[in-house]
């Protein structure tokens, strides 16, 4: 397996790459997002699967992002995503609004290697009106008069997510967060951070195997302890709501955000004692 360190993992992502990331109710690699900020990545095209959260706001705020394709961007209970909203207002990013099942469906088309897949609903929404790449056809299997949306396959350059553990073979285990499997299957390659590496082969363990993503899909792995933080990791650690509220408060302004980066990403400055 290809075990590397966090900064080397970030170095594998060229500027302009399209990255698929899970949202804050799944397993985003906030550690890798911070490493991408440190490496000074530019022009990234982020895909939220199916929505976006903390890591996206962070990357947008740090100027790493050219485009966001997602169904929503939010910090959950801490409110709207401040740097995303500011960048959108300033016209610094291209926003491609989608709706959750459309993101899943476009990735599922990639998983199957087919050029498009249909999806019900959406007809009449302004989302469709602003997506020239989405088409409406008449269902060819009906007698006529049944319009349905066709969505193009979406193949990200990299899937980026956090997992609980990797094994000696480079398989990762993340339990039921299967949107990460969709991300891995649909992307050209995946870069994964894990809490720990353990001996053995998860695929030979019938209890672990269903929660695994096989090494087939994974380019490289780095250990990042508490790599999802402030997002929860299954039953291992909870969402750090104080950390997110603190971010939401500081990131209201560009200056506050820079200070937050200095403390929490570049670690060139210590946090003020609360």
């Amino acid at each position: 397996m290809n075990l590397t360190d966090l900064e080397s993992l970030a170095a594998r992502v060229p500027d302009g790459s399209r990255l698929a990331m899970p949202p804050d109710n799944s397993l985003p690699s906030v550690a890798l997002a911070k490493a991408l900020v440190r490496r000074g990545a530019r022009g990234l095209r982020l895909v939220g699967v199916p929505t976006s959260g903390f890591a996206t706001d962070l990357l947008v705020g740090a100027g790493c992002v050219a485009e966001v394709e997602t169904s929503a961007v939010s910090l959950g209970e801490a409110g709207f995503a401040p740097r995303f909203s500011a960048a959108l207002r300033a016209g610094e990013i291209v926003m491609k609004d989608a709706t959750c099942p459309a993101i899943h469906t476009m990735l599922q088309a990639s998983e199957k290697g087919v050029p498009f897949m249909p999806l019900r609903g959406i007809i009449g929404s302004d989302i469709l009106a602003h997506r020239p790449d989405w088409k409406v056809i008449d269902n060819p299997f009906a007698a006529g008069g049944d319009p349905i949306v066709l969505l193009p396959a979406l193949q990200p350059d990299f899937g980026i997510f956090h997992a609980v553990m990797a094994d000696s073979k480079g398989n990762v285990w993340l339990g039921r967060k299967r949107e990460c499997a969709t991300i891995a299957h649909a992307s050209r390659a995946s870069l994964v951070t894990v809490e720990r590496v353990v001996e053995g082969d998860f695929l030979t363990d019938e209890k672990l195997a269903p929660g695994c993503i096989s090494a087939t899909y994974i380019d490289a792995i780095a250990i990042a302890e508490r790599g999802a933080r402030p997002v929860a990791l299954l039953d291992e650690y909870r969402m750090d709501t104080a950390y997110i509220s603190d971010y939401a408060r500081m990131a209201k302004t560009a200056e506050g955000f820079s200070e937050w980066l200095a403390i929490h990403v570049f670690e060139t400055r210590a946090a003020a004692v609360a």
Binding site: S71, T99, G121
Partner: peptide, 11 residues
């Protein structure tokens, strides 16, 4: 800007 549509256009 609100967060976004989530799954509403489908649901």
């Amino acid at each position: 800007r609100f967060p976004g549509s989530f799954g509403s256009a489908f649901m």
